[in-house]
Computed example of a mutant assay.
Amino acid sequence: MALCLAVMAVAVFVNVVLRYGFGSGVAASEELSRLLFVWMVFIGATAAYPLGQHMAFTSLLLPLRKKPTVLKLVAALIRIAVIVAAVLVAWGAWQQVRVGLDSQSVVLGYSNALLPLPALLSSVAIALMAGWELLRQRPLDLDHESDVE
């Protein structure tokens, strides 16, 4: 993620300086920035999932803390919902990857399959992690309320 952000920042900065300082720019900078931003977002989403740093509605689950059986059931339902959503995203991303294989980006000439590919990889990874948590019956992390001010 850091490498994507660094390259993206340098490419955009150079392009802005060239455009406003010298009246010209690097056309490839915009395509490269867009591609790197998409990859950075999905790498971040994949890295955040096992740490429990995605959206958490702990205020809805806190009353269930004293009911461990119900909390386990809710945790299982949440993980099943995550798997279903990830499978749907993966299916749509796979269709976009297939479409993108037949076309090239305008300036840099990379395959347009590289844009939806991180969504496919991320959703497969998140589905696998959620499935593993479901099999292990790992309890939900409800300690997020300490992060809220």
Rank of each mutant, 00 (worst) to 15 (best):
I126K: 00
L114V: 10
V84C: 07
N112P: 04
P63N: 04
V26K: 03
P68R: 05
G52T: 06
S33Y: 02
Y49D: 03
L114I: 11
L128Y: 04
L60H: 03
V12S: 01
G52Y: 04
P118D: 02
P116L: 01
G109E: 07
V89Y: 00
R19N: 05
C4L: 13
Y20Q: 09
F57G: 07
G52I: 09
V107N: 12
V12K: 03
E31V: 04
L62A: 14
M1E: 02
V10H: 04
L36S: 03
A47I: 13
G131A: 06
K72N: 13
G92I: 09
I83K: 01
F13V: 15
L101D: 07
L121F: 05
D143R: 15
G21A: 07
R79Q: 12
S33G: 10
R19M: 08
S146E: 13
L88Y: 05
V70P: 00
V14F: 06
A113D: 03
L32Y: 00
V74D: 00
L71R: 02
V107L: 08
L108G: 03
M1V: 11
V97E: 00
M8K: 05
V97D: 01
A127R: 00
R98M: 15
A47T: 12
I126Q: 00
R138F: 01
L135R: 13
L117H: 00
T58C: 10
S146T: 14
H144G: 09
V124F: 03
H54F: 06
E31R: 06
M40E: 03
W91V: 13
P50A: 07
P63K: 04
L51E: 11
E31I: 05
G131L: 06
S123N: 11
Q95M: 14
W91R: 11
V124C: 10
T69K: 12
E133C: 08
E145L: 13
N15M: 12
P116D: 02
F13K: 06
A119C: 14
V87M: 08
G100S: 06
P139C: 10
R65G: 00
L64N: 00
N112D: 10
V82I: 14
V12Q: 03
Q96E: 13
L135W: 14
V107H: 07
V124G: 01
L18R: 11
V10Q: 05
L73S: 12
L117A: 13
